[in-house]
Design a protein around this nucleic acid. Structure first.
Length: 231
DNA sequence: CGCCAGGCCGTGT
DNA sequence: ACACGGCATGGC
């Protein structure tokens, strides 16, 4: 009996999740800049808390490049307070605006025009930007095909035995991207966009620290794990 | 009340 | 190259 490849199984899970949850139209933001700010704020933080921070900035007309340029770092802290880590996050957001001003004339479009092979390392060099934040910005704010690997995706692919238990970010990213190789239906960025969106949806409901796999729409795939012959 | 959230960084091994 | 604790606040 030919074993279905791990990449093919992930592709089936993706199709199944899209049928379950439908098009998500991610990222939940009105503008690319709002995506960037949200990407910083949601680091290890519940999205409901991020929404309050974004609301605060919006109410003070600060949710724009010029708004963030003009606000003091101290004031920025108080506005993003609900999202936690306010000292670090305020400094990081300020650093991003300075980065944009220094290298891209304060324009996200100019940043987006640069190949991700150049922009990704530059983003990673910024304080407060790790691989997930960089890829979220690349994909959801700049429209580039970067697979976002969050904690939920890590749990899904390790618990289903698709990657080694201790797989690192780049390894999971390469694997997840491989599930879309040779796919000519729509753009890669669109698939990555929808993929991460449905992974977060299923993750929020079924992939806590302690797995709650009952009623998870991906439970069908666990048979692959349980049916493995004893080593 | 205790656990946890759509990570990242500095430090010690 | 890793593992580990700290970072801050609010939801459930």
């Amino acid at each position: 009996m030919m074993q279905e490849s791990a990449a093919a199984r992930l592709r089936v899970m993706y199709t199944s999740l899209v049928e379950t949850y439908g098009p998500q139209q991610w990222w939940p933001a009105k503008t690319p800049l709002e995506v960037v700010v949200g990407a910083y704020l949601t680091q290890s933080t519940a999205w409901t808390s991020v929404e309050r921070s974004l609301r605060n900035l919006e109410e003070h007309d600060l949710l724009s490049i010029d708004g963030l340029r003009r606000v003091s770092e101290e004031a920025l802290r108080t506005h993003i307070r609900p999202s936690g880590y306010m000292i670090r996050k305020a400094a990081a957001i300020k650093a991003f605006i300075a980065f944009l001003d220094e290298h891209y004339e304060g324009s996200l479009e100019k940043l987006a025009a640069e190949p991700s092979a150049i922009s990704r390392p530059r983003l990673l060099a910024l304080s407060g930007v790790g691989p997930e934040t960089a890829d979220a910005i690349l994909l959801y704010a700049l429209g580039q095909p970067a697979m976002v690997v969050d904690e939920y995706l890590r749990r899904v692919v390790t618990r289903h035995g698709l990657v080694p238990p201790m797989a690192k970010y780049d390894e999971i990213q390469d694997f997840a991207e491989s599930a879309f190789k040779g796919d000519h239906s729509g753009s890669l960025a669109q698939h990555y966009n929808e993929f991460h969106a449905v992974i977060v949806q299923v993750g929020k409901r079924h992939c806590g620290r302690s797995a709650k796999c009952e009623s998870c729409p991906l439970a069908f795939d666990l048979a692959h794990v349980h049916n493995q012959p004893a080593a």
